[in-house]
């Protein structure tokens, strides 16, 4: 299914912003991903065609940048920072407790872990990337939103309630 007129127009506007059209590729892929949730081969090709670039250029970027997804992801994506400043003040514990509250089995080793709820609506990740919120650690990103100061069980309960609300909204939107 092709991109909406709104997204296609937004991509055209991006191209007009820069002296060279290839600069528009990265923001355009993000616009397409915002609409589709991820970047399929068809979406990558459509974005490249819209800008007037070879498809391979879009694939090159999509397979390099961590925020671009070439596989389907859950509608609610949670990324816990497990890098040193967060890990020193309880990020590992916060991730484990969040996983338990969501009944998520985490896989992977050490700094990189992942799992999802049984209904596949929430994905939980532990990452080694730092998100620049070390003074409000532990923290996680939920989509584009920062959830900071996740220090107590109450903080985590509130986080999980928010995640479930987001998952329910995504489910009703899908229907």
């Amino acid at each position: 299914m092709s991109l909406s007129v709104t997204t296609r127009d937004a991509i055209t506007a991006e191209v007009a912003k820069y002296p060279y059209k290839k600069t528009a590729l990265l923001p355009s892929l993000k616009l397409a991903q915002k609409e589709k949730g991820w970047l399929s081969t068809e979406t990558l090709a459509e974005v490249a065609d819209l800008i007037g670039l070879p498809h391979s250029h879009a694939i090159e970027l999509a397979t390099f940048y961590a925020m671009l997804f070439t596989e389907k992801v859950a509608p609610v994506r949670v990324e816990y920072c497990l890098q040193l400043p967060c890990a020193l003040v309880g990020a590992e514990d916060a991730l484990a407790k969040t996983a338990k509250l969501l009944d998520v089995q985490l896989h992977g080793e050490r700094g990189t872990r992942h799992g999802h709820t049984k209904d596949h609506l929430i994905e939980l990740h532990g990452t080694v990337e730092c998100y620049g919120a070390c003074h409000r650690a532990p923290m996680c990103r939920v989509g584009d939103d920062y959830k900071e100061n996740l220090k107590t069980d109450d903080d985590l309960q509130r986080l999980v309630a928010d995640l479930k609300t987001r998952a329910a909204a995504a489910k009703s939107q899908a229907h």
Binding site: K17, Y18, T23, L26, P27, L29, K30, L61, F64, Y65, A66, M67, L68, E129
Partner: peptide, 10 residues
């Protein structure tokens, strides 16, 4: 001034 957001790469 153009504000440009990256996509996750240290």
């Amino acid at each position: 001034i153009v504000v440009f957001l990256g996509a996750g790469a240290y």
